[in-house]
Computed example of a mutant assay.
Amino acid sequence: MADLLTFENLGNLLMLCFLQAVLGFDNLLYISIESQRAPVAQQRAVRFWGIIVAVALRVILLFVMISLLDSLTDPFFVFNWEGVLTGGVNFATLVFVLGGIFIIYTAVKEISHMLAVDHLDTDVEAKSGKSALTVVMLIVFMNLIFSFDSVLSALAITDVFPVLAIAIILSGLAMLVLADGVTRFLEKNRMYEVLGLFILLIVGVVLLGEAGQAAAHAMHDDTLALRFFGYEVVPMSKTTFYFSVIVLFAVEIIQSGYARKLNAERRAGGGH
């Protein structure tokens, strides 16, 4: 126990908490949006148990990855279709591909649903069409997809299991505290829900980009990077991702302010 109470481990813990907070933004956004698909009376319980179960499984995932890191990172298949598809595939590649496709599908489906709805009241009722258990399972599944990237990043900082586990648990507690507030904000500001879905769409693209480099980074071999028609699949940098998110928020805020100004001018003109 005394070996854990070092300045190095404390510094790593603080760094890991910051990392979990940054990487957990999109996860929290997904939880807030998806939980609204459950019956209204059970939405808060869905968020609570979804996060609790997901955090527990994330700690288990961390333990498994530390124990089986070599076998999980080794490529089990290498594409060699010159000029069409080349590169290695490992467990991380599959996780990122499946997670990215699922998130993109979810975002596109929900955006299409919003465009197809004629009345807001109908939309509210339709959102409660999934069972609480189904939504909890989806939240847990996507939490694990999101956490895979954060766990790999955390292992690059330290391999001390208690430090990593504490950082994961603290991030889970933070999500529990913030989830209800984020959901209430989205419910009161429906326009930001559309913005959130577009952010999830970008997250899906980011995960697909990560898939292209997963085997190459694990084996430190650039020849294992996935290439389509000779073009390497390069992941979007975190800086680019968060810059895109900031731009989307800025556009939404400016557009909303401009719309309010136009409405005020129309009302003023109608009064005369």
Rank of each mutant, 00 (worst) to 15 (best):
M114Q: 02
A215G: 11
L61P: 01
L195Q: 00
S150R: 03
M191P: 03
G172H: 09
G11N: 14
E232T: 14
S244M: 03
N189S: 09
F249D: 01
Q255V: 06
V59A: 13
N27F: 09
D70R: 14
V251T: 00
V203C: 03
D26A: 07
A174W: 12
T223M: 10
K130E: 08
F243M: 03
N9S: 07
A56S: 10
V203Q: 02
S244P: 00
E110N: 02
A116L: 06
V84P: 05
M219E: 15
D159N: 09
S131E: 09
G83E: 12
F48E: 10
A54H: 01
L62W: 03
Y258H: 13
V234K: 00
Q255M: 08
D221A: 11
S153I: 13
L5F: 13
V117S: 06
I52A: 15
E187R: 13
A268R: 11
T223K: 08
L248Q: 00
N9I: 08
L201Q: 00
F25C: 09
L144C: 04
S131W: 04
I202L: 08
G212N: 14
T122G: 14
I104A: 03
V234L: 01
V84A: 13
L29K: 00
T73M: 15
L69N: 13
R37P: 05
Y231Q: 12
N189G: 05
E193F: 01
S128E: 11
V233W: 06
P162R: 03
F198Y: 01
F91V: 15
R190E: 13
G129D: 04
L201R: 01
L69V: 08
H217A: 13
A214K: 07
L19Q: 15
S128K: 08
Q43F: 04
L152D: 05
S32E: 03
V124Q: 14
F148W: 11
E34T: 01
N9Q: 10
I254Q: 02
I101W: 04
A56F: 13
F79D: 06
K109N: 06
L200Q: 00
V108Y: 04
L176V: 09
L201K: 01
L14E: 12
D159L: 08
F198K: 00
I33C: 04
V140S: 07
L144H: 01
I246Y: 00
D123C: 09
Y192Q: 04
N90F: 15
N27M: 10
F148H: 02
I169V: 12
G196A: 06
F148D: 02
E82L: 12
M142N: 02
V22S: 06
A214S: 15
